[in-house]
Nucleic acid binder design. Structure first.
Lengths: 212, 212
DNA sequence: CCTAGTAGATCGATCGTTCGATCACAAGGG
DNA sequence: CCCTTGTGATCGAACGATCGATCTACTAGG
C-alpha cells in the first residue's frame, strides 16, 4: 500500500497477483496490464523487476515449487518411522493445496514455458514425485506396506493429492486439516499397511514433534 | 484429405485440431489461425462452422464430455454386481484418459468459458463425478465396501483416475488396459472391499463379455 | 550528479472477427 | 438439352482492438 515499498516486496506482490490471475484466466489469457493493475504498479515497474512476461512466469513457477518442496522436506525432517514419513508427505501436500489452490497453476502452465525453463521446472515436479515414491518404497522395504507396485502407486497418490484443488473449497464443512487427515487414511489404504500382530501398531498420532 | 469433404467431417476435423492445439498451448495461447492451419482449412471456413472462437471451445468441450459420459454409461450397462459397476467405471475412465490424454483439456479450460456455458459444462463434470459416487455408494449399501466416507472417497477416486494423464505416455511399458486394471485395484483398496467369508468372493475377472 | 524505482505514451505484431468473392452442385423454366 | 438461380462451403484480404515490449521522463536518497 505505502508508496515506499522495498523492491523485494514489490516483486512478491507482482508474483502473487500473477498467480491469482493466471489461475483464473490462464497465462495467455492474462495480460501484463492485468497483472500490473492487480498489483497496483505500473507496467514499467513490472518489466523492471522481471525482464519479460515469460521470465515472470518462470520465476513464479520455480518459486511456488521451491516453497512446496521446502514445506514437504520440513514436514519430513526428523521423522524416522517409514509409515509416518509417507503420511506426513501426503498430509502437508494436501493441506497446502487446500489452503492455496491457485498455486496449482504450476501443473497446468508448464506448457507455456520455453523448453529450457520447462525442463528446469519439471525437475522440481519430479522431486515432489520422488518424495512420494521414496517414502512409499522405504515403507515397503521396511515391511510396513504390502503394496506390490510402489512406483505406480506413488504416482496415483500424488495425482490424488493434487486433485483436491478440483473440488475443495473453504466453507464446505471440512478444514484443510480435515482433508489432510482423510487423504492420509486414503493414501495408507493405497499403500496397503501391513497389520502388525502382537504389539499394537502404535496408532498413528498427529505430527510427533509438531513444529511450524 | 479429398477436397470434397462433407460439412460434418470438416467440423470434426476442426474440433480435433482444436483439442490437440489447446491441449499443448492452452486456449488463449492457440490462435484461430493455428487451428485453421492444423485442420487444413481457411479462417472463414472455421467461422462458417463455428460462430466464434468461444463457441468452438464450448461445443468441443461439450462434445468431449458427452463422449466420455456415453462411454462410461455404456461400460456400466448390463452390469449388475455393485463391485463390478464401480470397477467398470474406474476402468473405462482410466483407459480413455490414457488413450486420449489431450481430451483432459476439458478440466483445465473450463475457466475460459463464459459463466453460462461454463455452468452447462460443469453439469456434465458433475455427471461423471456422480457415476463414481453412486456406484461407490451402491457398493457400500450392498455391504461390499467398508468405506466410511464414500462421497469424499469418490472424489479422490475421480481425481486419481483423471491424473493419469499427467504421467502416462505410450511406450512406457504399460498399455492403457494395464493402467486400467491397476487403477481398478487401487480404487477397490480405497473403497475397502469387504472380504466374503465362506464362499470364494468370485475373484474378479476381466469384463464379463469381453468387448473388442 | 547518479542510481533505483516508478509511471504514462507509444511501437510493431498479432489477435478475433468481418467482408466480398469464388466454387460445386441441385432444381427448374425455356 | 442449356441456362439461370439459389445455397452451402470455402477462401484470402482487411479492420479495429489489444498484446508484449520499449522509450522517455519524473521522483527521492546519497
Amino acid at each position: 500500500m505505502e508508496p515506499t515499498r522495498t523492491g523485494r516486496d514489490t516483486a512478491d506482490t507482482i508474483q502473487q497477483a500473477a498467480i491469482k490471475l493466471i489461475h483464473s484466466k490462464g497465462y495467455d489469457g492474462t495480460s501484463i496490464r492485468d497483472i500490473a493493475r492487480e498489483a497496483n504498479v505500473g507496467i514499467a515497474t513490472l518489466f523492471h523487476h522481471f525482464g519479460s512476461k515469460a521470465e515472470l512466469l518462470e520465476r513464479t513457477l520455480k518459486n511456488e515449487f521451491d516453497h512446496l518442496l521446502a514445506e514437504m522436506e520440513s514436514a519430513l525432517d526428523g521423522v524416522d518411522d517409514p509409515l509416518e514419513r509417507f503420511a506426513a508427505a501426503v498430509r502437508v501436500h494436501v493441506v497446502l493445496h487446500c489452503e492455496k489452490p491457485e498455486s496449482s497453476i504450476v501443473n497446468t502452465e508448464l506448457r507455456s514455458l520455453e523448453p529450457v525453463p520447462r525442463a528446469e521446472v519439471q525437475v522440481k515436479v519430479e522431486r515432489v514425485q520422488a518424495i512420494f515414491t521414496s517414502t512409499l518404497l522405504a515403507g515397503v522395504k521396511a515391511g510396513r506396506f504390502g503394496c506390490d507396485r510402489p512406483r505406480e502407486t506413488a504416482r496415483a497418490v500424488h495425482g490424488m493429492c493434487s486433485a483436491v484443488t478440483a473440488w475443495y473449497h473453504h466453507g464446505a464443512g471440512m478444514t484443510p486439516q480435515d482433508v489432510g487427515e482423510l487423504y492420509v487414511e486414503l493414501a495408507l489404504r493405497l499403500a496397503e499397511v501391513v497389520p502388525v500382530d502382537g504389539a499394537k501398531p502404535a496408532a498413528r498420532r498427529r505430527r510427533p514433534a509438531g513444529g511450524s
